[in-house]
């Protein structure tokens, strides 16, 4: 009976966290100030981390926490600090365009949900192998089957770093043609 109670609590936890992720992601796209928008995005990613923990994907939870919340969003904040936006720098779109945008996104959602209704399978997500998302298991898969993509991704990161430095540095002197 104790386990049953616990399961119910955690099922409700999923729906609560799902509600929070939807709520914060709506706030991300509606906040006027870009800094608030980024802070709401941090909260959204935190709810995603909780989702990963509920799915017992511990490695992904840690990576999401460190890489997304720690690195990528700090990068966003620094860029915002560098370009020093004023509050009124973003001109408001006309209501027509706003309604069209919401309608477009809503149509996409309706199509996706309609496809989901056609499938009509509602099996519960059941963790068959408790060690599935642990570092040990994922490391074995990563370094056996996916060794070549792993090495290539290092090349990708290196080229991205070189490209970012190249793009962001100023030309020392204007080129004369």
């Amino acid at each position: 009976m104790g386990i049953r109670y616990f399961v119910n609590i955690n099922m409700n936890t999923f729906y609560f966290i799902a509600f929070l992720s939807i709520f914060f992601s709506i706030l991300v796209i509606t906040a006027k100030n870009p800094v608030h928008s980024i802070l709401y995005l941090v909260l959204t990613f935190f709810t995603f981390t909780v989702h990963y923990i509920l799915l017992n994907a511990q490695f992904l939870a840690v990576v999401n926490f460190i890489v997304y919340m720690g690195a990528i969003l700090v990068l966003f904040l620094y860029t915002l600090m560098l370009i020093n936006l004023n509050k009124d720098s973003e001109p408001v779109k006309s209501n027509m365009v706003k309604i069209a945008a919401v309608l477009g996104g809503g149509c996409l959602l309706v199509v996706l949900v309609g496809c989901l209704k056609q499938v009509g399978v509602a099996d519960p997500v059941l963790l068959k192998d408790p060690g599935l998302g642990l570092v040990q298991n994922l490391g074995k898969v990563l370094f056996n089957e996916f060794l070549l993509p792993f090495e290539i991704s290092s090349l990708l990161l290196l080229s991205a770093m070189v490209g970012a430095v190249l793009l962001a540095t100023k030309d020392p002197k204007p080129k004369s043609v």
Partner: peptide, 11 residues
Amino acid sequence: LTNTIKSVPLN
């Protein structure tokens, strides 16, 4: 913790 998500459907 592994038992917690038993009742959430994939849908």
